[in-house]
Write a protein that binds this DNA or RNA. Structure first.
Length: 383
RNA sequence: GGGUCGGUAACUCCAGCGGCGAGGAGGGCGGACUGUAAAUCCGUUACACGAGAAACACCGAAGGUUCGAGUCCUUCCCGGCCCA
């Protein structure tokens, strides 16, 4: 059940109640592609980092260890010992990112495993079956994510096919949820809007999928090469056509700034590899812009990553120590940075929710962006 | 004292076996990363010059052979190992 608690402009403050727990939105889902947050953060630790939802990937878990193995172990949630909700991505994005290895047809897509090169076929039914075996809380529709710069003609055909696939996803999900041995008979299905940067295709597609009355709606195919302005423009145009009494999910986005701008445009679910990937690379987020913890200027810096930060990293360790760990290639270095970043993202979402509750999101957003921009600016000028 | 292997781009280690304005790796410094084939990838790492028949950061040093030497020869210096 999705309750829209409050709106400020288009910004939504809501609550999604699932069989695996309540999700307060706007929310940032923490990405654990292969049933693990890269950087070595375990499920129980995520609780202390304010994580509400974990995201896992259909394709990766199908290839290894195999969705049947995961089902035999009681589903992803039990497998990784995560009590809360899990959203599984459909594998559609992998079809896009493994572009050189794919062959797309009406039935589905044939592409090669990145592990051993063997051919894999995945269509809407296969994706739903795998996600059912994984037993996630929310399953994503199997879509095609065309390149942002793709030709109009190609995008039109691709989006039409994605709609047909969505109908098949819905039917297959309904069938799977009614099977006696299903792990989650209440598994939800989110549809995905596509259309690259063509407003009219985006809007037409949004109207089509809105009619299917799904559990939630995502905007996909953004942050894949277009400019920020183009991305915000697409959100301005398309989000009004997605039901606001359902979750609105912007897939794969993004920077703290991207999230603030997108919340303002009506998005309330996010996910991104940034906090974990960038954390592994020593790039940490603060309210005054990002820091590269590899930089020589932190060699003897006794301060935490961010003064006043309540995360386990900042409460215990100096920048100098973290830099040393990263330079020495100690896994603890990456772990501490990822831990800080997840806390930063999850805390920012909490602040966004609080500001919406109090009706001053606009003011909060302005202040947050100003702080970040000021920090990035002084960083660029060498302070 | 005898034998032997080695001294290369300057932080370190190494490739090179007659066409070398000398290549790679590590380290250092900086950057990128948006539904994760990513603990990955990219740039840079003496001084000078500034694309010009022009310039010698000239490979431990000095000579020699050769059209041409980091590369071959001679002597010397330095280091490792073995023998006395």
């Amino acid at each position: 059940m999705y309750e829209l608690l409050k709106k400020e402009g288009r910004a939504k403050r809501a609550r999604l109640t699932t069989v695996h727990g309540v999700i307060e939105t706007p929310v940032f889902m923490n990405v654990g592609t292969a049933a693990a947050i890269k950087g070595g953060i375990s499920s129980p630790e995520l609780v202390g980092l304010k994580t509400q939802v974990e995201l896992c990937n259909t394709y990766h878990l199908h290839v290894r260890p195999g969705d049947k193995v995961v089902k035999a172990m009681g589903g992803v949630r039990k497998f990784m010992n995560w009590q809360g909700p899990v959203l599984t991505d459909s594998g559609g994005f992998q079809v896009f990112s493994l572009a050189t290895l794919r062959k797309i047809k009406e039935e589905g897509v044939t592409f090669r495993s990145h592990i051993d090169g063997h051919k894999i076929f995945m269509g809407p039914e296969e994706s739903m079956q795998i996600q059912s075996n994984l037993g996630s809380t929310i399953a994503m529709a199997f879509d095609e994510c065309p390149n942002a710069l793709a030709e109009r003609e190609y995008v039109t055909a691709s989006v039409d096919r994605t709609t047909r696939w969505l109908v098949r996803c819905k039917e297959e999900m309904k069938r799977l949820n009614s099977l006696p041995d299903t792990l989650n008979p209440h598994q939800m299905l989110f549809g995905i809007n596509q259309g690259a940067i063509y407003d009219d295709i985006r809007i037409r597609h949004a109207k089509e999928i809105a009619e299917l009355d799904l559990d939630g709606y995502a905007v996909g195919g953004l942050a894949v090469g277009e400019t920020h302005e183009q991305m915000y423009h697409v959100l301005d145009e398309v989000v009004p056509y997605l039901p606001d009494n359902k979750p609105t999910y912007l897939m794969g986005v993004g920077t703290p700034q991207n999230i603030l701008e997108s919340v303002e445009r009506g998005v309330d679910f996010f996910d991104c590899v940034y906090p974990s990937r960038n954390g592994r690379h020593g790039h940490v987020y603060t309210n005054h812009g990002h820091l590269n913890m590899f930089n020589a200027k932190y060699e003897t810096d006794p301060a935490p990553i961010e003064e006043g930060c309540g995360c386990p990293t900042c409460r215990n360790f100096s920048r100098a120590y973290i830099r040393h760990l990263l330079k020495a290639n100690e896994m603890l270095g990456m772990r501490l940075c990822v831990q800080h970043n997840l806390w930063f993202y999850n805390t920012m979402m909490e602040e966004i929710r609080d500001s919406l509750d109090e009706g001053n999101f606009t003011e909060y957003k302005k202040r947050k962006l100003a702080g970040i921009e000021e920090g990035e600016k002084s960083r660029r000028t060498g302070n």
